[in-house]
Design a protein around this nucleic acid. Structure first.
Lengths: 204, 204
DNA sequence: CGCTGTATTTTTGTTAACAATATGTACGAG
DNA sequence: CTCGTACATATTGTTAACAAAAATACAGCG
């Protein structure tokens, strides 16, 4: 479960989307797996309507590929050159966020971010790696959202998803927690350059 | 092949989406305008189902903003710093495409691209600026798709849309055609550096 | 006159039946 | 035996009715 962190109110569709993202990223749903709307509807106890919405959403995020009158299937990994491009673009976005955030983070933000990292540590110790991934993303999400609101989050999100799809192995060692702590410390002391360096090391 | 323009085998929903994008970008639908599903359904002669799909799609593209149980409205322009970021990211993507395409464009590609530019010129002379915008985009789309397939197009598209939303004025002078001709010529002679320069001048 | 709580209306969210398209299979001609 | 065609099945696309939520209108009260 997602800890006692202030879990936002999610619509039913958003929850389904979350679940399916997890399934795809964890590898439960392998690339090229064909999705069946009826099956999914039964599994989640809804009708096909909302399921179709979720599928459309995940397709736009790049996790699925849809063909007209045929259906959706799990997207496959990117070829290396595109993967490199994605990493570079995501770095640009996150560096922008950090630089833009200089002197704009309040004490409340730092508390929230530290709470996220505590949860990250906890999930890591429990070896709940699906949760680790989610919390990891939520840390970055916090910064991105603070810097550019929903608009920036919207363009950033597909990059994260696609990258996660590529590295489905558990890449998260102790380093994962440490890297984020380093970034947060740099942010706190207003050392943007170090924060950027830490970020670039973290996104790969 | 989806690089060919003449074959307009678009699904009904895609056509509606196209129409709505045009309406938004042309300014027919002003920012913050609230959309009514029933109205749209009647206007396009369909039921609300497909309309909802289109709305979801355009929301993911950043043209609309949706709120749960409330509905969708036209998104407003980005603030300047985000706008700059978007331009920079789009440039990165398109430069990647050009560099990646070196020595990979066939004669058939050049013919197709020239055809697009001829159409662009024609639309420009007819002063059909909505069409100019569409064809302009399709030129870039051709290169992006050739370089990175649907995946790359999918991440690239939102940037174009958001930029168009910001510059809804008719920015397209004669320069628009000329700029694209210059890019194509550079590509033809294998002069990547010049092509990149032309591209950067074109994306702004 | 402004405010508030409630009833009405409008709008979005969901569902299940129906239509159209693609897929799989059996059969027959060559 | 192979290829192609027609048929049967399964799956997606669309629709209209229904449920739930939000926006609006309005009456009563201070």
């Amino acid at each position: 479960m997602s800890g006692n962190r202030p879990t936002k109110i999610l619509s039913v569709k958003d929850q389904i989307a979350e679940q399916m993202r997890s399934d795809i990223i964890s590898g439960d749903l392998a690339p090229n797996t064909k999705l069946n709307e009826k099956e999914l509807a039964e599994r989640f106890g809804l009708s096909r309507g909302p399921i179709r919405d979720v599928i459309l959403q995940l397709t736009k995020e790049g996790l699925l590929v849809s063909k007209n009158n045929v259906g959706a299937s799990v997207n496959s990994v990117l070829d290396p050159s595109l993967q490199k491009l994605m990493i570079s673009l995501r770095r640009n976005i996150e560096v922008f966020a950090i630089e833009h955030l200089k002197d704009k983070l309040t004490e409340k933000d730092f508390v929230a971010l530290e709470k996220i990292l505590a949860d990250l540590q906890s999930a890591f110790e429990r070896e709940d790696f699906t949760e680790v991934t989610k919390i990891d993303i939520s840390f970055h999400n916090y910064l991105i959202h603070k810097a550019g609101g929903d608009d920036l989050v919207n363009i950033w999100y597909p990059f994260v998803m696609r990258m996660r799809l590529n590295y489905k192995r558990i890449t998260s060692g102790v380093e994962c927690v440490n890297e984020h702590v380093a970034i947060l410390n740099a942010l706190r002391s207003g050392d943007t350059a170090t924060a950027v360096k830490g970020l670039k090391a973290n996104i790969r």
